[in-house]
Write a protein that binds this DNA or RNA. Structure first.
Lengths: 350, 350
DNA sequence: CCTTGCGTTTGGAACGATCCAAATTTACCT
DNA sequence: AGGTAAATTTGGATCGTTCCAAACGCAAGG
């Protein structure tokens, strides 16, 4: 008794069936924990499964059942800690639900984005979570993913004919409100000449943050000088480099709302180089609350967006969508929270 | 002419075949670019593919061909920028090769690691890239992945009966040599009382780095005080918290080799709190060269490990293994490079 | 007219699972 | 024992693709 497992081939359900003299159907029922099968049969089958070292072939099952057990996660920049945390959150939930995460990283390239989406679609994901590249086009993405796979757009709006994609779910940060909170906080501290520093206008999140800033400035009746609106690549290095632009006009700002934490930390260094001490001579705020914001010198006032929780939320949203495929699309705007730390001091009296 | 695509169902190869009146086999040949099919037939089929919006079902093809087009990537901590960069590198290469990345994040939990591996195995990956959790057991992992799927161990050795897993490929950093470089650099700067700060002895990389440190100290004939070997959780927060331990003994160190950059940056803050200025009153080095190392105050001397390149390398190694499944297992130790910055000053003369 | 050969096309059996209706066994009640 | 209902098991078709051997059409050669 007990024939040996097959050699160059994986153990299949038929091998188990043959090994303990039942039909394939019965083994299948055991695998899925059906209450139909008899206790003793189940025990015999389970022993055989162990003995032969069976591993379930989910692809075959999915083919037959016309289901899917994967979710595609396509990110514009996985190396960015914000998205890395987000991905960890997504995977945390999906892993618990028996789904597997198909990863794709696009490095902000729309070409690569389309290629990655195309390749992932061939694996038939049940849904897609997409944080698009900066200049993604709605039409092209729609063409790549079709209209049968639910898609959750995260973090950024796409360009082009958005109307065609109004069946997508959306999960965005409340960028505008966040920037308003930061600006109002600086105004409350007594600042009047406040800049908006960093980011690219081509990204929707930057435009939204700027809008919040502008709104608050107008509401407070404060003017905005052109040289207080500085664009830069949203990383530390370019933020250091563009610092001088802030001070190129006649009226130098005493504070800045920064596009994100990376930019804010870069600006701190730039200020140091000009002999200004951030948190004493100049106030500034960030966005994201990355790990170092709490421990920089001075600690950075910023807006917490809890990317890991966002990842979990995104996963949950797409799973909900799978449950009710035809309920109307949802747009979720998640609030952000102002964390006041030492970098947003009151204006320095010279 | 031209019947419409099916409704509640995906377009299949049979739909195309029916749509342009050829057999399924012919369509299949067209899809795979076979030279056998006639030019005109190919054109007709390709038009029909477009017209119906066909998307290839790779799972079905893989089932029939008994192949796989995915690689599992299982990481102990995706949220860590080092691994996020690594993952981006892996995905970059795999994406170009038509493979898809199955992601799994384990959060340093061995339980979750086994669960994730089990779940990913059901999708039949062609290979596995694993950066194991701190106290992973070789036997258990082997049981989870079987011995038919090639596995590349990254970054850490696993515990338990390693002999059973000597068919795995390995890709490690040269931790010991790196720590030696850092220690020797500090010695050359004139330091004699040098600590090793941070990390957990349960991780193999920490043990290796300590070994390199100890080796260099012995070679230079320098004694090591017990309170100079401080363990801490390898993140910034705990590194700040444990700082005082360094100064608890009679002879305070004047420099420290830190387990990694996060720890080093934390230590900097801890030193500040004690009124010591890192880079002037105390010298220190990190490990990893994370983005902020270059822009901290002072900039951090560290060891560059180029995680993105490591990711690309890991992907290439596993692809090579798929090419030659039975060549003998490889162990690759990649060199690390010392980057001298301002944090590693000469001893301060009081 | 029959063969031969080449270039193309094709039906049907796989791959490893699930579904379903029908068959079989077991249990229970008169 | 006979009959019926419940519990358990099962064969065969099927998911969407690829493989393979066989068949087809057609031109050249005998």
């Amino acid at each position: 008794m007990g024939n040996t497992p097959p050699v160059g081939r994986k153990v299949t359900l038929s091998d188990i069936a043959a090994g303990c003299d039942v039909s394939r159907a019965t083994v299948s029922l055991v695998l899925r924990g059906s209450p139909l099968v008899n206790k003793h049969t189940r025990a015999r089958v389970e022993e055989e499964l162990l003995r032969q070292g069976y591993v379930y072939n989910r692809a075959a099952a999915n083919l037959r059942r016309r289901t899917s057990s994967s979710i595609a996660l396509v990110l514009n920049d996985l190396a960015n800690p914000f998205f890395a945390e987000f991905a960890a959150g997504v995977d945390e939930i999906l892993g618990n639900t028996g789904f597997v995460t198909l990863l794709g990283s696009t490095s902000e390239s729309t070409e690569r984005e389309l290629a990655v989406l195309g390749s992932l679609m061939e694996h038939g994901p049940a849904g897609i979570i997409l944080s698009p590249a900066e200049s993604s086009d709605a039409q092209q993405i729609l063409a790549a993913v079709g209209s049968h796979t639910p898609l959750l757009l995260f973090n950024r709006e796409v360009g082009g004919d958005i109307a065609a994609c109004d069946h997508w779910d959306r999960l965005f940060l409340d960028n505008q409100h966040g920037a308003r909170l930061a600006t109002e906080h600086l105004i409350a501290q007594g600042h009047q000449r406040i800049a908006f520093y960093g980011g690219h206008l081509s990204s929707s999140s930057c435009r939204q943050r700027r809008a919040g800033y502008t709104e608050s400035m107008q509401k407070a009746g404060l003017p905005v000088q052109p040289n207080w609106m500085v664009e830069c690549i949203p990383n530390r290095l370019d933020a250091v480099a563009q610092c001088d632009q802030l001070f190129s006009g006649t009226a130098a700002p005493t504070a800045a709302v920064c596009y994100n934490d990376a930019v804010a930390l870069g600006l701190m260094l730039g200020l140091h180089k000009r002999g200004l001490q951030p948190g004493r001579d100049f106030a500034l705020t960030g966005f994201d609350d990355i790990a170092e914001a709490a421990v920089s010198a001075p600690p950075l006032t910023t807006l917490a967006v809890t990317p890991r929780a966002r990842g979990r939320q995104a996963a949950e949203l797409i799973l909900q969508r799978l449950q009710e495929p035809s309920s109307s699309p949802r747009q979720t705007i998640v609030p952000v929270q102002l964390l006041v730390r030492a970098s947003s001091c009151a204006p320095h009296v010279a």
